[in-house]
Simulated scan of single mutants.
Amino acid sequence: MNKTNVQYYGAGFDANGRRIVSKICEFDPEKERNSDKISALINEIKAMSEDIAVAEIINADAYDQYLNRGCIRDNTTGKPVKYIPPEPTAEEKKASAASKIAAEYTPQLDELKGNLLTAVMTGDTELESEIKAEYQDLITAYNKELEAL
């Protein structure tokens, strides 16, 4: 843990356990005389964002885990746990694959569009026909790959 003179923090977490706001706690929350201060700090944290599902006071070690060690708040235990990203959904995998296909074809299609414009501007009808045919073949291949997804 990083050495700090701060022992406690007020922290706000979203419904997924991600820390979204925090504030230094300038008093010892373990002392009974500070109960009013605890409530005020919790309310202040909750007011910082409408996305806060849980606001609480945490110690410096837990704060370090959330900040520097890739942890999120476990909704069952309230303790820091290592964040494990969820597996992508089938829809996300499909979108990613479609994006890769588009990235492969887009530069070729753009080049053909530029070449077609040059052929039209120079009046080269033979080259224009060849480029249109090549463009159509490329669009057909692109669509087939997308449909295969």
Rank of each mutant, 00 (worst) to 15 (best):
N2V: 08
N2H: 08
N5T: 14
Q7D: 13
Y9W: 12
Y9R: 05
G10N: 05
A11M: 02
F13K: 01
A15C: 07
S22L: 08
K23P: 02
C25V: 08
C25L: 05
E26D: 12
F27G: 03
K31L: 15
R33I: 15
N34F: 06
S35F: 14
K37F: 13
K37Q: 13
I38Y: 11
S39L: 15
S39A: 15
L41N: 04
L41E: 04
N43M: 09
N43Q: 09
E44T: 14
E44R: 03
I45L: 02
I45E: 02
K46P: 10
K46T: 13
M48C: 05
S49I: 05
S49W: 11
E50N: 04
I52L: 06
I52N: 03
A55Q: 03
E56M: 10
I58Y: 00
N59V: 03
A60K: 06
A62H: 05
Y63Q: 10
Y63S: 13
Y66M: 01
C71T: 12
C71W: 02
I72P: 00
D74H: 01
D74K: 05
V81F: 00
K82E: 13
Y83M: 05
P86M: 06
P86C: 04
E87G: 01
T89R: 04
T89S: 13
A90D: 12
E91G: 03
K93V: 15
A95N: 07
A95I: 08
S96R: 09
S99L: 09
K100F: 14
I101W: 09
A102S: 05
A102K: 05
T106E: 13
P107R: 00
L112Y: 11
N115P: 07
N115I: 04
L116N: 01
L117D: 15
V120N: 11
D124L: 00
L127D: 13
E128S: 10
E130T: 09
E130P: 04
I131M: 06
K132N: 15
A133Q: 12
E134Y: 01
E134I: 03
Y135A: 10
Q136H: 12
L138F: 08
Y142Q: 14
N143Y: 06
E147H: 10
E147T: 12
A148V: 08
L149R: 04
